[in-house]
Design a protein around this nucleic acid. Structure first.
Lengths: 267, 267
DNA sequence: TAAATCTTTTCACATTATGGAAAGAAGGAG
DNA sequence: CTCCTTCTTTCCATAATGTGAAAAGATTTA
């Protein structure tokens, strides 16, 4: 258990309430660890003395943000988060807001249109307007897929701060799903840069052979990306050369969703 | 908008890192307010001076737990929560864990079996094993329903600390959905007490005319309730006099789900 | 343009969080 | 069963940290 520079360096910079930041560090560490943690582990891994960790945990437990298994004396995130996460300010009713707008994309492209949000280390389908054709892309709502090998997932990552992207990749890696999956971190970084630059992203069968998709970001308040929308279909119909043609339509619909979202939020 | 006791009383008592508690107060207040809030409102409603609120918000914004709309200078919960909420420690893959176990209930009862979790002020269907009969109860997964008028919802509330229950009811009220919906807070309190006492809950068409259900809690670590399971069916088949017969089966399956959950968690 | 309202920054102060160390539990080895 | 080790919890003197009143700045209203 080695001490890690008790100096205030790292996140010090300016402002920031120390104890709050440490509490958040703790919560985030618990979130990303895939098993229940003991105090000594938390202390070692976050570099805070056990006393401090213990006191923070007490506070968080009292509010149900952390639970303690009294048998093993291990800690994990608690149920209070789902109450926060359920707030419709951060989890809008995407089905209601987006589905009618997504249908427009189905009419234009003939392919299934999706709205996807980030949840933890994965992308989740939150709304969908299915293609009317016999062969079509279809996913259950709530379905979770990797971020690195889907059009929408890559969009969501591309508009995330560097540090978030790195920590996600550190945890999940870039596992190969098909022959076209990008598995090299450097190349993946370039892919994200390309996406940011041209404003839309592609999925060339990177998650599932034979499924292609074109995706754009959906912005919330303050230009933060809150979701991604896409049209997805079978490779034989959806040629990636069509992307520059579809992208403006996707962007228009994205802007409409942003507007609808803002309407929901403003009072 | 009246001021609520500026005294440090309330949660003071022992322990608890003050600034962390205040930050949590702030987050919870933001979560429950249905619109974006200005600093002055937050200050008035939480009883903290604007300076303090401002500083806390800075810290939370820096970490994306709060977002600020720079046009209106209003604040809301930020995207960092979905990352935490996505942690499989607090959001297990219920479909995977519970669905096979729920099927057992379908075989016994002939009716649809559901697993429901709490999310914010509502209950969300997280797993389901549908009845094989022609007329049957069915809901989309991810569907959100009120807590106060559903079997599972009432279970979830019954095993929640008083203060949580009160704050939820304060926000949502007890709106009448059918003739049997409990709309009186006192009576509702008694209902929750009854549920705790006998260990299972009923829904006698309180949300939808003609749909009845029997529900029991699902416990996680440390005897905390993390979900509820139920069998639901049409009133003409599902007589509430059958409840004492079904309840033990529900409890057995609930225990199995708890066990499966623990297996997931322990390494 | 002036007044009023709201937001952001500042700063002296002491309350509050800190973390080392002691006390207490639990777990393991012999 | 007892001793020893390892981990958790509590304690407390210290000063670093968070506090909040008020000033400064920004924006909206009159």
């Amino acid at each position: 258990m080695q001490k890690v520079s008790h100096s205030k360096s790292e996140s010090a910079s300016t402002s920031g309430v120390q104890s709050v930041e440490r509490a958040l560090d703790l919560l985030e560490y618990l979130a990303q660890s895939s098993r229940w943690m003991r105090i000594s582990e938390l202390s070692a891994d976050t570099g805070q003395p056990v006393g401090t960790i213990h006191r923070l945990l007490q506070t968080l437990i009292a509010r149900d943000y952390v639970v303690r298994d009294s048998n093993t004396r291990r800690y994990a995130l608690g149920p209070a988060f789902s109450a926060l996460a359920g707030s419709n300010l951060i989890m809008p009713n995407w089905q209601e807001i987006a589905t009618p707008l997504l249908r427009e994309l189905v009419e234009i492209s003939g392919e299934t249109a999706n709205l996807v949000v980030m949840e933890g280390d994965r992308a989740v389908y939150a709304a969908q307007a299915p293609s009317m054709r016999i062969i079509r892309m279809f996913t259950e709502l709530g379905n979770k897929v990797p971020l690195h090998c889907t059009g929408c997932g890559k969009i969501l990552l591309a508009y995330q701060p560097e540090r978030i992207v790195r920590s996600i990749i550190a945890r999940t890696g870039l596992p190969m799903r098909t022959a076209t999956t990008i598995t090299d971190p450097i190349q993946f970084g370039q892919e994200l840069a390309t996406i940011r630059q041209r404003g839309y992203g592609l999925d060339n069968g990177e998650q599932e052979e034979g499924v292609r998709c074109i995706a754009v970001p959906v912005f919330g308040p303050d230009e933060k990306v809150v979701a991604a929308i896409s049209v997805s279909g079978p490779s034989n119909r959806l040629d990636l050369s069509q992307a520059p043609i579809f992208a403006p339509h996707l962007k228009r619909v994205s802007a409409n969703i942003t507007a609808a979202l803002m309407d929901e939020l403003k009072k």
